[in-house]
Design a protein around this nucleic acid. Structure first.
Length: 477
RNA sequence: GCCUCUUUAGCUCAGCUGGUUAGAGCGCCGGACUGUUAAUCCGUAGGUCCUAGGUUCAAGUCCUAGAAGGGGCGCCA
């Protein structure tokens, strides 16, 4: 394997007839003479020219779609118009045959639904190649951004003993016999006999533990898997997803917004700078798909234009109270087009958020200072006693990408809020104690990584931006 | 969880107001051709019309229930 050259490198190498060895998968074999070879390093293919008189027909038949080969030959300038260089094959070795009578993929456009049901093969397509390279790039950029800004990467537990985080339904982690669990005298399942000696779940957020880190290291971020057992059937929810949660001491809501905005812009810039080919491919893919759609169903801007626009413009920042006022003065409100009511004290619905983002401002919007009644117990109570220092970052097409807040750092106020909202004080005693022993003002947020990948790649279904999606009734591979 | 649409060949789909042997393109397989670019040309094979009931002389087509999938909503990231 030592002499193998990556196709990405070969395509930019000066052809002088030098001998090269390449390995890859066949994308097409045309005229019994031309192989389009791809090794995943770029989605441009290398043309391999085969002298078919040198091989018997049985061998040539095995050079089929997605079969894997090793080719040694001379790198020369291409005679054809479609590419700059090509390899004149001197030796072809079949590394892996492909049985096309059973293989589901075909050398043509396939639907996302079909590819989703063959997730073990879909990474071989150009679209998923591009998506997962960009996903990698964004993950790398997350670490680079925080590292370069003095944050420490903190790993919060995936199995937690907290039952009271309130971020959603949880998956139980247990080794007890589901058919015959030990019972207490009251007839309940006796989790004291379980593996951890208590009831445990998969985490729904690393935030609460992240606060511990922030109040010691100053600035931390988490980036790990997160689990929600909600029966959500939408294009933007997963049961298992990755979340980035920075938490910063001595930062207020204003600083939190600044951090969120600069972070998102950094991620998008990184993708545009490092994955221009992939983004251009995805941009064209969306345009092609939209050709058959009605005008009002198409995006107002192409993918690349949208990304540039987000990076070049300040996010709009408004309070919840202002948002309600704007919505009540909006055309759809006055014409009764909204399905849900708009009045101070009820949460904004997707239709309201979309109007703000897509119609009113035409750019990302940060809504702050929501009524305390439908926000989490840990968000800092504002002086008005009615609202909390929360923020939601709303994006076009995908809605909420970030939810965050300045945290309640006053012991008594937090204790009251926990009691008000029925949060178990015993269970989260350690969290409350952070305010008792050297507490500090601090803030943070959670970014849904897949939603970010969705936005940058323009993929319409979140299940297509994670290699093996988990969702209700879906846990293949 | 709610609403809605869909389910016919390996894939994408057609199949009229119910009426002979269910079709097309692509793919596969076989053949021809050979400087191609989603190569081209010819040919063969391939179907539990999602499942179970029902209506009818007759059901891919109509009705009921269920399953799976898409989209929208809610919950949220």
């Amino acid at each position: 394997m030592s002499k193998r050259i990556e196709i990405k490198k070969i395509l930019t190498t000066e052809p002088k007839g030098q001998t090269v060895t390449v390995m890859g998968w066949i994308r097409a074999f045309r005229s019994k003479r031309f192989i389009a070879l791809n090794d995943g390093t770029t989605f441009n293919n290398l043309q391999v020219v085969v002298d078919f008189e040198e091989y018997d027909d049985d061998f040539l038949k095995k050079l089929s779609f997605h079969a894997c080969i090793k080719v040694t030959g001379a790198l020369v300038e291409s005679q054809g118009a479609g590419q700059r260089v090509e390899v004149l094959a001197r030796d072809i070795e079949l590394l892996g045959e492909n049985n096309l009578e059973e293989y589901p993929l075909q050398p043509k456009r396939q639907t996302m639904e079909f590819l989703r049901s063959h997730a073990n093969y879909r990474m071989r397509t150009n679209t998923f190649n591009a998506v997962f390279k960009i996903r990698h790039g964004l993950a790398f950029a997350v670490h680079k951004f925080y590292n370069d800004n003095g944050f420490y990467y903190m790993n919060t537990p995936i199995i937690t003993g907290n039952d009271a985080e309130g971020a959603g339904e949880m998956f139980r982690v247990t080794t007890l016999d589901a058919k015959n669990p030990p019972l207490t005298e009251e007839g309940e399942v006796d989790f004291t006999q379980d593996f951890f000696g208590k009831s445990t779940n998969l985490t729904v957020s690393g935030q609460l533990q992240g606060e511990i880190g922030a109040l010691a290291l100053g600035k931390i971020y988490t980036f790990g898997p997160t689990f929600r057992a909600e029966n959500s059937n939408t294009t933007r929810h997963l049961s298992e997803f990755w979340m980035i949660e920075p938490e910063v001491a001595f930062m207020d809501l204003e600083g939190n917004m600044d951090l969120a905005e600069s972070f998102i812009k950094y991620l998008i810039n990184h993708a545009m700078n490092h994955y221009p080919e992939e983004l251009a491919f995805l941009d064209k893919r969306i345009q092609d798909a939209e050709k058959n759609m009605k005008k009002e169903e198409r995006r107002p801007m192409g993918l690349l234009d949208t990304l540039r626009f987000v990076v070049d413009n300040d996010f709009e920042r408004i309070t919840y109270t202002e948002a309600v006022r704007l919505l009540q003065n909006s055309k759809p409100y006055k014409k009764g087009r909204f399905e849900f009511p708009v009045e101070w004290g009820t949460d904004l619905q997707a239709e309201h958020e979309r109007w703000l983002v897509e119609k009113k401002f035409g750019k990302p919007v940060i809504v702050t200072d929501y009524p305390k009644d439908f926000k989490a117990f840990y968000m800092r109570l504002n002086d008005d006693g009615k609202t909390v220092a929360a923020m939601d970052v709303l994006f076009p097409y995908i809605g909420e990408v970030i939810g965050g807040a300045q945290r309640e750092d006053r012991f008594d106020v937090l204790k009251n809020r926990m009691n008000e909202m029925g949060v178990d004080e015993e269970e989260l005693g350690w969290y409350l104690d952070l305010r008792k022993f050297g507490g500090a003002p601090h803030a943070g947020f959670g970014l849904g990584f897949e939603r970010m990948v969705q936005f940058v790649t323009g993929m319409t279904n979140i299940r297509d931006v994670i290699p093996f999606p988990r969702a209700p009734r879906l846990a293949d591979f």
